[in-house]
Amino acid sequence: MGQVTSPQAETWVRAEDPSAVGAVRRQAVHLAEQAGFDATLIGQTAVAVSEAVSNLVKHAVEGAVMVRPHPETASTVELISLDRGPGMADIARALRDGYSTSGTLGIGMGAIARIATGYDVHSLPGKGTVLAMHFTAGDAAAPPQRASGVTRPIGDETVCGDAFAISEIGAVTTVMICDGLGHGHIAAQASQRAVELFQQVRDQEPLAILDHLHRGLSGTRGGAVGVARVEPGGVTFAGLGNISGWVAHAEGRQGMVSVPGITGHRGGRLRQFAYEVPAYATVVLHSDGLSARWDPSTMPGLFSRTPAVIAAGLMREAGTQRDDASVVTARPGA
């Protein structure tokens, strides 16, 4: 494994109008065809995606949804949705076929769970819901769900200057996040170049990867970069610039050190640090498009969910509209 996710792979759609249902469904069908789904699975994917987006349009507050190739495998299509209310008090009840209420996103949840190859939900009454579901082609292996991430452009921009990349080799998961300096296409050129450079050396230690990116981004606007190598029991981290790194779990979080500078331009001596990662913890890297003040204790249950739901939940809770934003999450492999 080791597919790299680029910033162009993600487009968030506001679920404020019924037209969002058709737009997201068409994108899901297009991606399913590219992933090699047969006609039956394409149709099932379209039904589940339509149901999920319809729920947002009918019941959610500030709902948003995206559909994309899964960051861990090209044979899988993933949908992630999030909103700020009303939330569900009883997720198990909402997953029963036929259950509905005007006060929750319960309509169709049972059908979604049955059709999807995999799904995960986190919901808090009054706070909102995060849903991640994926569909895998034929006999292809389902994604291991060890790592995920999301990006979101500033304001109404269509291009995000942040990007992330994921590599999984055996029990080792290596993730990279880049916040290109500025916004728009110029920032995206830097972050996309970082993704390409990461591909070349993704099997190396974070310090070596960061050094390779630092030299390779010299002809671009540059940016802030963090690289984490996650394996059973621990994480090795190297960062240059304003990237926040954390080892987080339900009870709290521990910060990881990134040295000051701009990758590709200036910085002090690059350094690598090692931290313990309990089996129940998640490694989180994010750009300054997310406030660093988030607190796991205010999001009960979130850090027991899959990396995709954790990443989207953090984007909803800590993301700002004043900057491009990105967050990537990873757990130790078996």
Results as ranks from 00 to 15, higher is better:
Leu95Phe: 02
Val121Gln: 06
Ala132Asn: 13
Asp97Asn: 05
Ala137Arg: 04
Thr151Met: 03
His185Glu: 14
Ala163Thr: 05
Thr151Asn: 07
Val130Trp: 13
Lys127Gly: 04
Thr174Ser: 14
Pro206Leu: 14
Gly161Arg: 03
Glu157Lys: 10
Gly108Ala: 12
Ala113Cys: 12
Leu105Val: 00
Pro144Asp: 09
Arg96Ile: 15
Lys127Pro: 00
Ala165Trp: 06
Phe198Met: 04
Ala194Pro: 06
Thr136Trp: 02
Gly155Thr: 07
Gly106Pro: 01
Ile154Leu: 13
Thr158Ala: 14
Cys178Val: 07
Val195Met: 13
Gly103Val: 06
Ser167Asp: 15
Arg114Gly: 10
Phe164Ser: 02
Gly106Cys: 15
Pro153Tyr: 14
Pro153Ile: 08
Ile166Thr: 13
Ala188Leu: 07
Glu205Ile: 09
Val130Phe: 10
Gly161Leu: 05
Cys178Ser: 15
Val150Pro: 00
Ser102Met: 05
Arg93Ser: 11
Ile166Pro: 01
Ala137Trp: 00
Asp203Gln: 13
Pro153Gln: 08
Ile177Asp: 05
Asp179Leu: 10
Gly182Asn: 09
Thr151Ser: 06
Asp179Asn: 13
Ala194Thr: 09
Gly126Lys: 02
Ala141Trp: 00
Thr117Glu: 05
Met133Thr: 04
Ala163Gly: 11
Asp120Cys: 05
Tyr119Ala: 10
Asp203Val: 12
Gly182Pro: 08
Pro206Arg: 11
His122Pro: 02
Ala142Ile: 00
Gly170Phe: 07
Asp179Met: 12
Thr104Asn: 14
Gly108Cys: 12
Thr136Asp: 03
Ala140Lys: 03
Leu181Tyr: 02
Thr136Ser: 08
Gly161Cys: 08
Thr117Met: 02
Thr173His: 03
Gln189Ser: 14
Asp139Phe: 01
Gly110Phe: 14
